[in-house]
């Protein structure tokens, strides 16, 4: 298809063809991204050169900073942080889902848990940091706890919303086929909650990363400690490299979650859009 069109374009004179080719290439997602990245890198490099390394490292400095991170073993520190992130986040998901189901699905659940969840929601999670240090120390448990405190709430609240949002007419439909209460929960409520659950997990993941960095910045340990040291010592090349890695962990994690979501909820809007795109 593309070849045939390209062929017919060449017959129309060189300049038109060049424009046409550029136009056609622009349609590819990766070309678009590549061009945008290229512009960002050039701008970054220029800005870094103008400001100087004391304020803003260039792109190439940052790459070298990354190499130093690898060579000097700082990645091991980051791996430990990542582990804390994953454990805290996994706990948030595993505990958050059932709590959300109870909160949204049963009146007594709401009556018993509602206030605490609400208090948790409106309180600054950062305010918990000193208390968590008193309770859990400054090590692994504390950091996992903070990641949990930052992210679980979003899983809980979204799952609970999904549970309250189950369509009454679909419940009525199931009942019209003689569905028992249990069957209504398993076959109607749970599947309708799944998209909300993923929304909560995606949101929660972002806050889990935030929790991880803040927890470590507060006690000056792990990756957060590293960031603080590097900033004070004006080793901004490695500082930037770490910031980029954290951003990458965030992007990679949320695209894994998105992919999972598409596979688990093939009826959802996200999955439908990809099939359409593939079909075109």
């Amino acid at each position: 298809m593309v070849d045939a069109r390209a062929l017919s374009q060449t017959r129309r004179g060189a300049s038109a063809s060049a424009l046409g080719t550029a136009g056609r290439l622009w349609r590819y997602k990766w070309i678009q991204r590549g061009v945008v990245w290229g512009i960002i890198v050039v701008a970054w490099q220029t800005f870094g050169l103008i400001r100087g390394p004391f304020y803003f490292p260039t792109f190439t400095d940052t790459i070298l900073g990354f190499v130093r991170l690898v060579v000097e073993g700082d990645l091991i520190v980051m791996a430990a942080s990542l582990q804390q992130l994953l454990v805290g986040f996994a706990l948030a998901v595993v505990i958050g889902i059932p709590v959300g189901l109870i909160l949204g699905g049963s009146r007594s659940g709401e009556a018993v848990l509602g206030h605490y969840i609400n208090a948790w929601y409106v309180t600054s999670k950062e305010a918990l940091l000193p208390l968590m240090i008193i309770l859990l120390g400054v090590g692994f448990e504390y950091r996992v706890g903070i990641v949990f405190a930052f992210s679980a709430l979003y899983v809980i609240v979204n799952v609970a919303t999904g549970m309250r949002d189950v369509s009454p007419s679909l419940i009525e439909t199931a009942r019209s086929f003689g569905a028992s209460r249990r069957q209504v929960i398993v076959k109607i409520a749970l599947p309708s909650v799944v998209p909300f659950m993923f929304a909560g997990i995606r949101l929660g993941y972002g806050f889990a990363i935030k929790g991880m960095v803040i927890a470590e910045l507060w006690v000056l340990g792990g990756t957060g400690g590293l960031l603080a040291d590097l900033a004070l010592q004006r080793e901004l090349d490695r500082y930037f490299a770490i910031a980029l890695i954290i951003a990458l962990v965030g992007v990679a994690g949320s695209s894994i979650i998105r992919t999972l979501e598409r596979h688990i909820t093939p009826w959802g809007a996200g999955a439908m859009r990809t099939t359409e795109r593939r079909a075109v």
């Binding site: 007419s169 679909l170 009525e172 439909t173 086929f177 799944v194 909820t265």
Partner: peptide, 18 residues
């Protein structure tokens, strides 16, 4: 209450989206 040997076709379809 409803029973399994009676079928209902709903005005607004009410298909299960999943």
């Amino acid at each position: 209450g409803p029973a399994g040997d009676r079928g209902m076709v709903f005005q607004s379809f009410n298909l299960f989206p999943w």
